[in-house]
Design a protein around this nucleic acid. Sequence first.
DNA 1: TGCATACTTGCACAGATGTGCATCTGTGTA
DNA 2: TACACAGATGCACATCTGTGCAAGTATGCA
Lengths: 138, 138
Amino acid sequence: MVIEKHKAVMDDNYIDALKALAEPNRLRLFWLLVHVDQRITVAEAMDVTGETQYNASRSLKMLYKTGLLTQEKRGKWVYYTLAYQLEPHLDKLIESVRCLPKERFSDITTRCKQRLSMRVDGECMIGANSEEWLNLIS
Amino acid sequence: MVIEKHKAVMDDNYIDALKALAEPNRLRLFWLLVHVDQRITVAEAMDVTGETQYNASRSLKMLYKTGLLTQEKRGKWVYYTLAYQLEPHLDKLIESVRCLPKERFSDITTRCKQRLSMRVDGECMIGANSEEWLNLIS
DNA sequence: TGCATACTTGCACAGATGTGCATCTGTGTA
DNA sequence: TACACAGATGCACATCTGTGCAAGTATGCA
C-alpha cells in the first residue's frame, strides 16, 4: 500500500505537468519562460499575455507546483523561473516545448521583450496595466 | 485570419497530444507502446490493461488522432503502433514518456509479454477475456 | 446469407477544470 | 500605524472529460 501510494504520487507529478501544459494559455506562458531565459513576475506575465491577475497567478503557480518552474519572492514581487536539473522525463518534456515552432509565439515574444525593457537593473518595478506599458505597446 | 486558424490547428495537435497523455490509463497504454516496440490490437490492450472495450478502443483512437500512434487494419483486427519520424516536439514528447521510471509499469509489462506470447506468427488470434488468457494469468 | 466477433460511436451522467468576481494575505512606503 | 499594491485563494458557474451502457458498423466464417 505504501508502494502504491508512492507510485501514485510519482505518477501524479508527471501527469500534472502534462495537464498544466495541455492548456493553451499556460503553454504559451511556459514556452515564454523556456525561451526568454529570464525570471518573470506575475504582473509582467499579465501584461505580456493579456490575461487577468487570477489566471496569470494561477498558471504560474500550477507550473511551479509540478516542478517545471521555481519560485523566488523578492519584496512584494514573486519571480518565476524555468527549473533546471530535473528528472529525465521532465527535462525531455521541457525540450519538447522548446522545439515548438517559434512562429506560433512571435507576438508574445515581442511583447515580452518590450515588457522586460521596462525593468530597472533587471528588477521589475512597475505593476500590471500601467500607463507606461499601455503607451509602449500602443 | 487564415493564419490564426492555421496556428490554432497546429497548437491543438500538440495540446491534444498532451491531453491524451495526461490521463493515467492512456499514459500507461502509451508507455507500453513506446517500450514494447510492437503493434497491438484493442483486444490485447483490453487484456493487458484490464480496461473495458470502450476505454481501450477510445484511448488508442485518441492517441492515434494526435499522431502519436499509427493505425493498421488487418481483417477484423486493428493494430496500433508507435509513430516514427514525427515533428521534433512530438518526438521529444515520446522521448519524455520513454524516460519514465520503468518500475511504475512493471506489472503492465509482464502482462503484455504474456499476452503477446499467445500470438501465432506474430498475429493476434484470440479476443479479449478468453479462457486461454484467464488461465495464463491465474 | 446468417451469425459471431472485433471494434467504434452515441447518449447520459458524474467528476474535473477554467474563469470571473470578490476577498484575503503579505510586503513596501508614507 | 495606515495605506497602496503584488499576488494568492475561496466561491459560483459554465464547460470539458472520463466512464458505463447500449447500439451500430465492419469483417471473417459456416
